[in-house]
Amino acid sequence: MADVKAAPAAPARTGWDRSRALSWLQDYGVYASVALLLVFNAVFTPHYLEAGNFRTQLVQVAPIVIVSLGMALVIGTEGVDLSVGSVMSLSAAMLTLYLGYGLVPALLVALLGGAASGAVGGAMVAFLGVQPIVATLALLVGLRGLANVLVPQLKEFRDPGLLELGGGSVGGVPYVVLVAAAVTVAVGFAMRRTTFGRRLVAIGGNRRAGELSGLPVKRVLVLVYVVSGVLAALAGVLSTARIQAADPTSLGLLMELSAITAVVVGGTPLTGGRVRVAGTVMGALLMQLLTSTLTKHDLPSSWTQMVQAVIILGAVYAARQRVTR
């Protein structure tokens, strides 16, 4: 071990311990926090451990989880996707417009819309060298407008298939939650077992090295944004199914911020090169639990926001320590 590590010249003992503690915090802090909140609620919140409560929480968090997983992939490449909320509203609009052709075609068209938006954003980033934040900001603005043009106002509808998708469940587990779980498993698998996942983190970790190693850097980048777009569209479809109405004006508003929060709190560094799938899911859960806990104890939502801010800062601080170590 001695000649293996390029050990920094013996920093002060306390400093080393602190950086280790922070690194532990980045890796497992989110799990510990979720566990802590669950224990707190089990003791202090009445009726918390009932199945109905968990079901509600999970149904609420499912779309955020789905979007966050796509966001985690984009952030893994040192990028960011601000367009996810608008893609959700676009998918809601397209779903409504094509529902006349049947549920499955409408779903496909909605997801395709998400893929196309992602392809546009990814192409801007990969081929034109536009900064991710700018490219997806343009989409954030433009796609919300497009969705509003397609469906100018809130449009309710009754479709039995969609109703089932949004409200149904199998064995007590809502479909929406099942879909989120399936997406989690799929993204986890992609990161661990596919060339796409391996290349993604390599490009995020050192893009120049990826290029010189002959990796299809541009193709991977475009694909990452396409995945993020499809997942956002999926979340849009599920949300629409749940409320039985297309609401392009407000659906997915500020979703990009919730997703980034979940990713960061989950321990994925904004500097790229690492994607934490389970951590991201936990990050989304943590924020959800926090909101519900404070609400159940009759604290105003402004309190929730302030506590969230502290958690975000803590997560970013822990990550910063790791980079500068």
Binding site: R199, V201, N206, A209, L212, R274
Partner: peptide
């Protein structure tokens, strides 16, 4: 450092990086 190593990835991932097509089938590693 700048053009070769991907520092955050393991030795294993770094070695496999360029040869991934040969070490996978249909995109599965």
């Amino acid at each position: 450092k700048a053009e070769g190593i991907v520092p955050a990835l393991s030795i294993r991932e770094n070695i496999a990086l360029a040869a991934l097509p040969a070490l996978s089938r249909a995109g599965l590693v």
